[in-house]
Computed example of a mutant assay.
Amino acid sequence: MADTLDLFGQSGPEALSDGAVLMRGFAVSETDALITGIESVATQAPFRRLMTPGGKPMSAAMTNCGAAGWVSDRRGYRYEACDPQTGRPWPEMSDGFRDLAVEAARLAGFEDFTPDACLINLYEPGARMSLHQDRDETDLSQPIVSVSLGLEAVFLWGGMARTDPTQKIILRHGDVVVFGGASRLRFHGIAPLKPGRCPGIGARRYNLTFRRAI
């Protein structure tokens, strides 16, 4: 694997690969509104650890908001309009959530992105996300917008095959990654989260990933 990249302090979007950029601190000014929004969503659709199709629990807890929510169980990975835990539609995506994602995508060169789904991951120390592709969405021409809040994490940025070399990129509170185009199906993940505390958020990391799912 390549050495860890520390891009903190560089101005403007930082290219990770063709179609993928990192925007340092882009969401910091929206922290309070984003955390309030996450808490509102979790009140209606609590965080839970989903099961993989192979029957193993994921280490990060998840919930969703928007017209569709990403779910996983022994039936496979998919989007559903209703929360299988409550039987009710997923909470609405707030204007603040949507506006942030649309603006980040625009600055990354994706002018027509309008998300209809937001998957919210909750990582606590030790939680991780194995290398995977985001390929359950209907229109793969639309980008993914990923917002990091809380503890810093090591983002694993791979290639088009699971066995390709993987870059390690430090993601801090407020950082946003946008990837689409030639990078839309790159493998990516999160290394096990290290212990620590983030002011106002505590010993956890939230990751909001905005998609055009349906």
Score class of each variant (00 low, 15 high):
Thr163Asn: 04
Leu171Lys: 00
Val176Cys: 09
Gly180Trp: 12
Glu152Arg: 15
Val154Ile: 06
Phe155Lys: 00
Val145Thr: 15
Gly180Ser: 06
Ala153His: 09
Glu152Tyr: 02
Arg186Thr: 03
Gly181Lys: 04
Gly174Trp: 02
Ser183Gly: 04
Gln167Leu: 11
Ser183Met: 07
Ala153Glu: 13
Asp164Gly: 01
Asp175Ile: 09
Ser141Arg: 10
Val154Glu: 05
Ile169Thr: 05
Thr163Glu: 07
Gly158Asn: 02
Gly158Lys: 00
Ser183Ile: 10
Val147Ala: 10
Ala161Ile: 04
Ser148Pro: 13
Ser146Gln: 12
Phe179Pro: 08
Gly174Cys: 02
Pro143Val: 14
Ile144Asn: 08
Lys168Tyr: 15
Ile170Phe: 10
Phe155Trp: 00
Gly174His: 05
Val145Trp: 12
Thr163Cys: 01
Lys168Cys: 15
Gly158Ala: 04
Leu171Arg: 03
Arg186Asp: 00
Leu151Asn: 01
Gln142Ala: 15
Ala161Asn: 15
Pro165Val: 04
Gln142Gly: 06
Pro143Arg: 12
Val145Cys: 14
Thr166Lys: 00
Ala161Met: 10
Gly180Pro: 11
Gln167Phe: 08
Val147Leu: 12
Ile169Lys: 03
Thr166Ala: 02
Leu171Cys: 01
Leu171Asp: 04
Thr166Leu: 02
Leu140Val: 12
Ala153Ser: 15
Ala161Phe: 06
Gly180Arg: 10
Trp157Cys: 12
Ser141Gln: 07
Ser146Ile: 11
Arg162Tyr: 09
Asp175Met: 05
Ser141Met: 05
Arg162Glu: 13
Val147Met: 13
Gly180His: 08
Arg186Ala: 02
Lys168Arg: 15
Leu140Thr: 13
Gln142Val: 05
Gln142Tyr: 07
Ala161Lys: 13
Ala153Phe: 04
Ile169Phe: 04
Leu156Met: 14
Gly181Thr: 06
Gly174Thr: 06
Gly181Leu: 12
Arg184Gly: 11
Ile144Cys: 12
Arg184Asn: 05
Arg172Pro: 04
Arg172Asp: 07
Leu156Trp: 06
Ser146Asn: 14
Gly181Asp: 10
Gln167Cys: 13
Leu149His: 09
Arg172Ser: 12
Gly181Asn: 10
Ser148Leu: 04
Ser148Asn: 15
Gly159Lys: 01
Val145Phe: 11
Glu152Met: 07
Gly158Asp: 08
Asp164Leu: 00
Asp175Ser: 07
Phe155Glu: 02
Ala182Glu: 13
Leu185Pro: 07
Trp157Glu: 12
Ile170Pro: 13
Val154Asp: 03
Ile170His: 12
Val145Pro: 12
Ile144Asp: 07
Val154Ala: 04
Asp175Ala: 10
Ser183Arg: 03
Leu185Gln: 14
Leu151Cys: 01
